[in-house]
Design a protein around this nucleic acid. Structure first.
Length: 847
DNA sequence: GTGTAACAT
């Protein structure tokens, strides 16, 4: 059905299109003796330039003339596509009027000029500024944003040409954002989206969903996806520019992307044949000082104190929960050559000293105001700096902040009072959004609101309490986005999912408990803790902002103003809080030899890096010299945590040969819990009966295997099957996606998968043993043995650990257990648990 | 007797 359209596009468009679409290869290949692949002012940019002739920018002239040429061409050939294109154009023209009113619009020239003069632009755009959709369009029309044809010499000495640049990448922290921004920009540009047409100039690339065309000029992708592309092509030759959006969220991936980009810029664009790469860094509320220093400073001499996170780190180092935790970090034997442990330690001490001497320092960039300084110059260009800076005001209505006069002990109770206070006092419309810490607090407040609403005066509007958290089934999440019924006020009870991932319209009142659950990896004991902690100032501002998107609003903070002023200014970057195994493996696979010297935005503690290096070495991902091994390279290609990647590789070894089974288990372990949590006791018992056929006494790993198999064996009604077995259908769909991806990857990497038809192989007790032994290849350190008193203690480190109540082995006593996760909440729990034998563990550790 | 959020050829 598409072939017809393809043909039309190829015969009716300008000849350049024909040439472009007929070629399947991307412009990053060396083409010897071929004709040019893409030229500056060719159609992909003319399509982008549907916009207004009122745009008087000089850089547009080429393309506007192209535009004129393009249109008559279409008209002449009675193009059936004209109808479709016409509609797209019409929509785009309508959107054009809206776009003109965006705050960013008046800065378009400044943005263009910045990147003509400099290689790096730091852009702070408050919410509603339109930065994510407009900046790519503004830059795509620049003359530097075209494919360069560069002479090059191939390995065999033959002379030829390479093509570098032409496309703009915009990275997003989340898949939904990448996809929806691409959709929006495609509409504004008036082009079909992604792979729907070979002439599409706007596309996206996220896991499980690549939608680009040979003409893609603007590509939205997730941070992880860009990292994967860098693994293949460190020079990012496809792109003329990379725009990193939402840096302030500071996931691990964005820190790696930033480090690689800086290395690329400072390394004279190695791998790009001298063609510069423009870098845009966009953020909502970040203090820019850290970013300026990052790009301007030399990573060798940069003072880690500049970022302000060092203090947070130093603090947490010393507020550890056990005495043994408080020992001075012992750097011990180190994997890395010429370590800087002395310097590092010194900095920690300086952080301490600094904090004691100048406690105001960590607030310096935010001061006590919520708003960034607007008096500062919009564009600061010191001549010797390679960095341009631009600030764009947002389009937010004012939000009044109301602080609690005194500290709040029970924020569920305080929220309840606030909800009814607002409800009694304030007229409709205006929904309420409450930020809580987790599923349990959300659900208990939900019950309370419903209970109290019964006794309300009948003259008052109704109250509709709506829970919102990630584990909630999709259908229940959708209810939040429906407009409130007549004479009803919605009260959305949310976790921090509503802070960034999800926007709810209609909200004018925000109640912020000032806390969220944060995962912190404790390097020394290899334990994740998931604890309720105060949020940062920037998170508090973000939450507040949710009240002012459509009208002036109010934000009730369930903490005092002094508490607010004492909050850390930014979220602690994830790279300072997580197990660095995967991050270090990614760096090693990208050729970073000395991890300590990597261009970190915020260098993690040396100890955490060493722990990761040790883990990778023990799993044979690194060799004796610390260089990446063949196994390590294979592991880096797998979209899995380090231990799971190791298990998958082990499963292909001749003595184990259980790849299909291991893939099924790993897929289930890689997604959120596939078993639904049930609330009433009857439902719980019902579920136990329904799941009985899935249960394996060996433990959770094999129970997951039987569940995945049974689900996949159901061909007619999987949704019904999931419901009958109290299994999350959404999670199982994710499992199926991961499973498919892993099978494909194993096939490509020639990992022995055996026949694909092993779904019906009976899981004998021997096979179960093989599978568990296979898992010990990655999880030998995640084991604990039974003590005489009935408790379990970890084999490595002798820490007390309890089997999590969600495990099938909960309450059972076996010789030893192996677990997928070790998490501290109220106590230390092992999650994803199976029974193992001590001699298997000994074998795995010894061998 | 229990789960903040998100990402990956």
């Amino acid at each position: 059905m598409f072939s017809g359209i393809d043909k039309v596009a190829m015969t009716s468009g300008p000849p350049q299109i024909k040439q472009e679409t007929s070629s399947t290869s991307k412009p990053d290949l060396i083409i010897f003796g071929s004709k040019r692949k893409r030229k500056n002012d060719e159609p992909q940019s003319t399509v982008l330039n549907h916009g207004p002739s009122q745009d008087s920018n000089g850089g547009d002239r080429n393309t506007s003339s192209g535009n004129k040429k393009y249109k008559p061409n279409h008209a002449a050939v009675q193009n059936p596509l004209e109808g479709v294109q016409g509609k797209l154009k019409e929509k785009a023209r309508k959107l054009w009027d809206q776009r003109k009113t965006l705050p960013i619009w008046s800065h378009a020239d400044v943005i263009r000029q910045s990147l003509r003069d400099k290689d790096v632009l730091l852009l702070v755009g408050e919410t509603g500024s339109g930065k994510s959709t407009q900046v790519p369009q503004i830059l795509a029309k620049e003359t530097w944003c075209t494919t360069q044809r560069v002479p090059a010499t191939a390995a065999n000495g033959k002379k030829g040409f390479v093509h570098v640049g032409g496309c703009i990448a915009i990275t997003e922290p989340r898949r939904v954002a990448a996809v929806s921004l691409a959709r929006r920009v495609a509409e504004e540009v008036g082009t079909p989206l992604g792979s729907s047409s070979p002439a599409s100039t706007v596309g996206y690339n996220v896991r499980f969903d690549n939608s680009t065309s040979p003409c893609t000029k603007i590509k939205f992708l997730t941070e992880g996806m860009l990292l994967q592309e860098m693994l293949r092509d460190p020079g990012l030759r496809e792109y003329s520019a990379v725009i990193v959006d939402e840096v302030h969220e500071r996931g691990v991936n964005v820190d790696l992307v930033m480090g690689f980009l800086k290395t690329l810029i400072n390394g004279k664009y190695k791998g790009r044949y001298g063609v510069p790469l423009k870098v845009g860094v966009m953020s909502a509320t970040v203090s820019m000082e850290g970013l300026i220093k990052f790009f301007e400073g030399d990573s060798e001499t940069r003072d880690p104190l500049s970022s302000g996170y060092r203090q947070a780190e130093a603090e947490s180092e010393w507020s550890g929960f056990s005495e043994s935790d408080k020992e001075t970090p012992d750097t011990g034997a180190n994997q890395e050559p010429h370590g800087r442990s002395g310097l590092q330690k010194n900095n920690n001490l300086r952080a301490f000293h600094n904090k004691a001497c100048d406690p105001g320092r960590e607030l310096s960039t935010e001061a006590s105001s919520d708003k960034p300084d607007r008096n500062g110059p919009l564009l600061r260009t010191t001549n010797d700096s390679a960095v341009a800076i631009c600030h764009i005001e947002g389009r937010q209505y004012p939000v009044t902040v109301v602080y609690s006069p005194e500290p709040v002990q029970d924020f569920v109770d305080a929220s309840l009072r606030n909800i009814f206070q607002i409800h009694y006092k304030e007229p409709l419309p205006g929904d309420i959004l409450v930020f809580l810490t987790g599923q349990t607090t959300v659900e208990s407040l939900e019950h309370l609101v419903n209970e109290y609403a019964i006794g309300m005066s009948p003259d008052l509007p109704n109250l509709l309490a709506l829970p919102l958290f990630a584990a909630l089934p999709q259908s229940a999440q959708q209810r939040v986005f429906l407009p409130a019924p007549p004479k009803t006020r919605k009260v959305i009870l949310a976790t921090n999912i509503a802070e960034t991932s999800v926007t709810v319209s209609g909200v004018r009142y925000v109640i912020d408990c000032g806390k969220s659950k944060i995962k912190q990896f404790r390097t020394r004991i290899g334990l994740d803790s998931l604890l309720v902690k105060p949020i940062s100032k920037s998170a508090a501002i973000q939450r507040k902002g949710r009240a002012g998107r459509e009208a002036p609003g109010q934000c009730y903070r369930l903490y005092t103003e002094q508490d607010y002023l004492n909050l850390q200014s930014q979220n602690t970057p994830e790279i300072l809080r997580c197990d660095l195994g995967q991050a270090v493996l990614t760096m090693k696979a990208r050729g970073v030899t000395n991890i300590i010297d990597f261009a970190f935005l915020d260098p993690p503690p040396r100890e955490a890096i060493e722990k990761a290096l040790m883990q990778l070495f023990q799993l044979k991902a690194l060799d004796d010299s610390g260089a990446i091994s063949k196994i390590g390279l294979e592991m880096a290609r797998l979209p899995l945590t380090v231990p799971l990647a190791r298990v998958l590789l082990a499963a292909g070894e001749p003595e184990l040969r259980c790849v299909p089974e291991v893939i099924d288990i790993i897929s289930a372990l890689s997604v959120e819990n596939i078993f639904l949590t049930l609330h009433s006791e009857e439902r719980e018992e019902e579920a136990q009966v329904a799941r009985r056929e899935l249960y394996r006494r060996e433990g959770d790993h094999l129970t997951l295997l039987t569940t995945v198999r049974a689900y996949c064996a159901e061909h007619t009604d999987r949704k019904g099957w999931a419901e009958r077995h109290f299994v999350s259908h959404r999670a199982m769909q994710a499992v199926v996606d991961v499973r498919k991806q892993l099978r494909a990857q194993c096939y490509r990497s020639r990992i022995h998968t055996g026949s694909d038809d092993t779904d019906n192989t009976p899981i004998t007790s021997e096979l179960a043993t093989t599978i568990l032994k296979c898992f010990l290849n990655g999880f030998a350190v995640n084991t604990a043995r039974l003590m005489p008193d009935g408790s379990y203690k970890t084999v490595v480190g002798n820490q007390l650990v309890a089997i999590h109540p969600s495990s099938g082995l909960y309450g059972k006593k076996v010789e030893a257990i192996m677990y997928n996760e070790f998490v501290f909440t109220n106590r230390s729990y092992a999650r994803g648990v199976s029974a193992v034998q001590m001699d298997w563990v000994g074998e795995a550790i010894g061998g």
